[in-house]
């Protein structure tokens, strides 16, 4: 169980990364924290010809709280963000949910943007980006663009990133003062979610975002609902998610959790 051979590029400037991606296209993979990619390399599920290591680029390791958004560079590790003193104030939902991402030993290396790039449908970070309506900052030698979370995740492990683009950063809208809540059910602590839910108060009501069920995190905005109206809304949403069976859970179980946890979280947020 050793990786297939690849060239290794240690980038010393962002331009080198972009040039590398431009030249190598789909044959290249960006190596950040490596917590998903390296396992796939070891199992030979992924066989890029070139790995471009971006972790020596200090310009990518910044967290900036500016103009109503928190921008997190591609080199920022999950543990770094979790330890950022402004986190609870600016991104309370992330403060709640980041401890659910993997384990201490993987958060210490894994990056925020790396998890988004990997786009595992059960991972917490894509869910959080969708829940908060964040943006992914993409950059290539051709252009720079920002893609909203709902546009970025297009399928299981598939994103809107073109092959020559680097996820340079991600930005989350800074906290607007509304309540938020997060809950996850996994087989064991630290496992990928069977169902993860985040509820966020919105100016008109509440947004519920669900991960682990569909191919991408799915969000739904509702006005302030309760009682049977909320039950019906959650039931409809649960059925729309196209849940599936696997060795860890059944589709029905997933829908049940969406209905029950969704209701609990919305109750917490709207109370």
């Amino acid at each position: 169980m050793k990786p297939a051979a690849f060239d290794y590029i240690r980038a010393e400037a962002v331009d080198e990364v972009l040039e590398g991606l431009s030249k190598e296209g789909g044959n290249a993979r960006v190596l950040a924290g490596g917590q998903s990619l390296m396992a796939m390399l070891n199992m030979r599920l992924a066989r890029p010809k070139v790995l471009i290591d971006i972790m020596r680029l200090t310009e990518l390791s910044r967290i900036e709280d500016r103009a109503g958004a928190v921008t997190i560079g591609a080199g920022v590790r999950q543990a770094t963000l979790l330890a950022w003193p402004e986190l609870t104030r600016t991104l309370p939902l992330l403060a709640l949910a980041l401890p659910w991402v993997g384990h201490v030993q993987t958060r210490s290396r894994g990056t925020i943007c790396g998890s988004l790039a990997h786009a595992d449908p059960s991972a917490e970070l894509p869910l959080l980006l969708v829940a908060l309506g964040g943006e992914v900052h993409l950059r290539s030698t051709r252009r720079r663009r920002r893609v909203s979370a709902s546009e970025f995740f297009v399928g299981m492990m598939a994103t809107a990133r073109a092959e020559d683009e680097l996820i340079e950063a991600v930005s989350f809208p800074a906290h607007n003062g509304g309540r938020c809540a997060f809950r996850e059910v996994a087989r064991r602590h630290g496992d990928f979610a069977i169902v993860a839910c985040a509820a966020v108060a919105t100016p008109t009501g509440v947004r519920l975002t669900v991960g682990g069920v569909a191919d991408v995190p799915m969000a739904r905005d509702w006005p302030c609902l309760d009682g049977s109206a909320l039950d019906d809304a959650l039931n409809g949403f649960a059925h729309e998610l196209d849940a599936r069976d696997d060795v860890h859970a059944t589709a029905r179980y997933r829908r049940d959790l969406v209905r029950i946890i969704g209701r609990d979280l919305i109750g917490e947020v709207l109370q």
Binding site: Y8, R10, L31, G34, Q35, M38, A39, N42, L51, D53, M55, R77, A79, H103, V104, Q105, T106, S108, R109
Partner: peptide, 21 residues
């Protein structure tokens, strides 16, 4: 977790890390 070491003060799975890194 058997391969966990510390790299530059960070807990690190050495099986998910390249020597070159």
């Amino acid at each position: 977790g058997a391969c966990t070491v510390i790299v530059d003060g960070m807990l690190t799975r050495s099986c998910l890390t390249l020597a070159a890194q």
